[in-house]
């Protein structure tokens, strides 16, 4: 039901993000989605990648602080209102969302959600029959 998200702590200085993407590229790791949370003096880069374990290993070797987090990844139609429907479900059940990001390709859109209570998030979305995405479907979609 969940998918592993990789997050990396970054100091706010020029060139740090491309350092991360360059290292991942060198090791053949593909980025499916990412978002950057920024504050006045640091940033947190959150990524869904093709190979979490390799990515974690190579980034740690390069002295990055790396963390794996369970997040929910869902597919929905790439049409107006599709995301609103999902968010309505979560809101009705009082599922608080820490952060989320989304990407779309053709007719489908995928959305990554980090609820405070992940179990409750899964249960809520399951009841509504929302299609969760796992790594193999992600890989399929990317091809």
């Amino acid at each position: 039901m969940t998918i592993k998200q990789l997050s990396v702590f970054l100091e706010n200085k020029t060139g740090r993000i491309n350092e991360v993407t360059r290292i991942l590229a060198q090791h053949g790791v593909n980025l499916y989605a990412f978002s950057l949370a920024e504050t006045a003096d640091f940033g947190i880069l959150r990524m869904i990648v093709s190979d979490v374990e390799v990515a974690r290993k190579v980034l740690r070797e390069a002295n990055f602080a790396v963390r794996l987090t369970d997040v929910l990844c869902l597919n929905c139609a790439n049409t107006p209102g599709a995301l609103a429907e999902i968010l309505d479900l979560l809101a009705r059940e009082q599922v608080f969302i820490e952060y989320m990001y989304a990407f779309s390709e053709g007719e489908t859109a995928s959305v990554v959600i980090r609820p405070t209570d992940i179990e409750k998030g899964i249960a809520t979305l399951n009841r509504a029959d929302c299609p969760f995405v796992n790594f193999s479907t992600l890989r399929q979609q990317q091809k």
Binding site: F9, A37, T39, F42, I44, R46, A65, R114
Partner: peptide, 15 residues
């Protein structure tokens, strides 16, 4: 420097 086990993916935790 934050110890590795204490890094978070959430801004609020880091703050």
């Amino acid at each position: 420097e934050v110890r590795e086990a204490f890094y978070s993916d959430e801004v609020s935790q880091m703050m």
